[in-house]
Amino acid sequence: MKRRDFIKTGVAAGAALTLNFDGLQAALKSNNMVVEQVPDMVAVMGGEPEAMLDKALEELGGIGKFIKKGQKVVIKPNIGWDRKPELAANTNPGLVKALIKKCLDAGAEKVTVFDQTCDNWQRCYDNSGIAAAAKEAGAIVMPANEEKYFREVTIPNGVILKKAKIHEALVEADAWINMPILKNHGGAKLSCAMKNYMGIVWDRRFFHSNDLQQCIADICTWEKKPVLNIVDAYRIMHQNGPQGKSAADVATIKSLIASPNIIAVDTAALGMFNQVKKLDIAAVTHLGKGESLNLGSTDLKKINIKRVRM
C-alpha cells in the first residue's frame, strides 16, 4: 500500500468512525435504545399513491439511497393495455409521475419511461395517462414499438432464456426502478414485479412458447437488477387479468410495497392479493423458479419488513 493510499484510507475510516459515533450518541441522547435498522421491505397501506410512495421511500432511507446524482434512470411501469387508470390494467400514472420527480430531484441526469405494450402502444401510452404524466414530470417517454429499440443481451444464469433483446434505454441506464401494478394474470397467474420484466424484452412470444414461468424467472436474472421494485397496489385487478373487462375486476386496496428484493416484494404482493382472491403460491411457479435462481426468498420471515398504516 502506498503511503498516500494509506493516509486516504485512514482519513476515510476516521471519518466513518466519527459519523457512527455521532449516530450512536444521537440515539443515546434521544433515549432510544433500539437503533432503527433500514428495512428490507416497506409496505404502506391506506394512503393516496403519492403519499404512500413518500412514506415508503422515507422508510427505506430516501430516494438518494437508490438514485445517485448524474445517473441515467429508467422507470419501468406497466403500460400494457389500452385502458383508463381506473381499470387497474396499468400502473397508476400519479405514482409514476411522483417517482420521476423524486429521481430528478435526487439529481438523475435523465429519467426514461417505456413499456413494450400489448395493445397499440400509442393508445396505451395515452389512455393509461402515463405518457402525459411522465412528460409533465420531466421524463423522456420513449417508444418501444419497434425491434430497433431493443438490443441483445446475454442471460448467463437463465435456464431456458439464455439471451434476450432488451430495450436500449434500459441497457444504457445506470439504475432502473421496476414499477408494476398488482394483477391477476391468465398465464403467469400473478402479474407483479417479476412479470413486469416482460415489458423490457422484445420477443415475448419466445416466453410463451418456451415455458413462460421459467422465462420470467430467467429474465429476472439479467445482471442489471432494478435498484427498487415499487408495487402499485392502490387499485389491483383481482380477476380477468392482465387486461380486465370492467370495474368489477378491480379492488381498491390502497397499498404500496417497495423493496430491492424482487421475490420478497412479489411474495408480499401475493399475500395482499390473497385477501381479495385466492391464489396459491404454488401456481405462481415463476416465484419458486426465481427463488431457485437465487433471486431472493419467498420466506418473508427472513427479512426485515416495515409495515406502515396511513
Binding site: C118, G186, G187, R204, H208, N240, Q243
Partner: peptide
C-alpha cells in the same frame, strides 16, 4: 397448444382477449 404439447403455462391468447371469450 403449448399447454398440451409442452406442459407449461402460456395463456397469451386469453391475456389478449378483451371480452374474455377466451378464458383460462
Amino acid at each position: 397448444c403449448i399447454v398440451e404439447t409442452e406442459n407449461t403455462d402460456c395463456g397469451a391468447c386469453s391475456e389478449h382477449c378483451p371480452t374474455q371469450a377466451v378464458h383460462m
